[in-house]
């Protein structure tokens, strides 16, 4: 479909290039907001727009002061630390429960498979504000509201659908005769799991874990309700910053988070290729 055939009419030519331009504009719409904040975060002034100095590419117009603020400000550092305390724990919970369940769900005979699947995926579908409201009510009753473990459990629940989806997708391509062969050669189920099955589905498990991690790391609605001041995470701090007095430090934080997502995206892409190679498909 690429390129125009030599017999294309003028009308077709015009449409072909117009279409490319339209697509270019839409891509611009997708990427520009994220791209713009990166240079803005190096602004030497406390403005949210490009200063004349910046446009003239004058080095004086740029500085790292917002980054310095982020790394020295106590609120931001505490928030960053809280995020790194909560997200990995929630990830560990979702991945361990989720992988086990995904293996169970991919067995040949699972009673009520559809219902179980619908229940396990529901945290992804139910609007966050409703999950947050319900968790706030229920966790207050059982004394988990405002505690570290309350937030961790809530985030783990939100991350589970992603683990289930990625790991079951990986297990679709898993060759069952491998486990039978392993059992036949005398391995017990635990050995079979860790030495045969796990290495093969590992890419899926890791990408599920990354999804769960980013879900928790980015999550703000639930932590806003279930957490207390002691569990203030990075997104929460950003949310307060945006709602009350908006400080340019947010731009620096945003840039750091964009860098983090690029890193994550690259890791996922590598994992996907590896997984497809393991399953004998051509890398796409």
């Amino acid at each position: 479909m690429s390129g125009l055939p030599i017999y294309a009419t003028t009308g077709q030519r015009v449409w072909y290039y117009t279409f490319r331009v339209i697509c270019g504009l839409i891509f611009f719409f997708l990427i520009a907001p994220i791209a713009v904040i990166i240079p803005l975060s190096f602004n030497a002034e406390d403005f949210f727009t490009f200063t004349p100095k910046m446009l003239a590419l004058d080095p004086d117009g740029y500085s790292l002061k917002h980054y310095r603020d982020f790394f020295t400000n106590n609120d931001w550092q505490q928030a960053l630390w809280n995020s790194f305390r909560i997200a990995p724990m929630a990830t560990i919970l979702s991945v361990s429960f989720g992988t086990l369940a995904a293996i169970g769900l991919s067995q040949q005979h699972v009673p009520f498979r559809r219902v179980i699947m619908a229940v396990l995926i529901s945290p992804m579908i139910v609007p966050l504000i409703i999950s947050a409201a319900g968790m706030y009510f229920f966790y207050s009753r059982i004394g988990l509201q405002g505690t570290y473990w309350g937030v961790v459990l809530a985030h783990a629940a939100l991350g589970i659908p992603f683990v289930i989806i990625t790991v079951t997708a990986t297990l679709v391509g898993f060759d069952r005769s491998l486990t039978r062969a392993s059992a036949n050669l005398g391995a017990d189920p635990v050995t079979t799991f860790f030495r045969v099955q796990m290495p093969l589905i590992l890419p899926g498990v890791i990408s599920g874990g990354l999804f769960a991690f980013i879900t928790s790391f980015d999550e703000v609605v639930v932590v806003l309700f279930v957490g207390s001041a002691g569990q203030k995470t990075l997104p929460w701090q950003m949310f307060t910053g945006l709602r009350e007095q908006i400080s340019p430090t947010i731009l620096a934080v945003a840039t750091i988070l964009v860098a983090l997502s690029i890193l994550l995206l690259a890791t996922l892409e590598i994992l996907r290729r590896r997984s497809e190679r393991l399953r004998g498909m051509s890398p796409g």
Partner: peptide, 26 residues
């Protein structure tokens, strides 16, 4: 079937307690 259910049950219980129960409470 039992083995499949046994593998799924920890997560099912986890989701029921941390997610479905709060929704029911609401």
């Amino acid at each position: 079937k039992m083995r499949a259910l046994l593998l799924v049950s920890p997560l099912l219980i986890f989701i029921l307690v941390t997610f479905i129960a709060p929704i029911a409470d609401m």
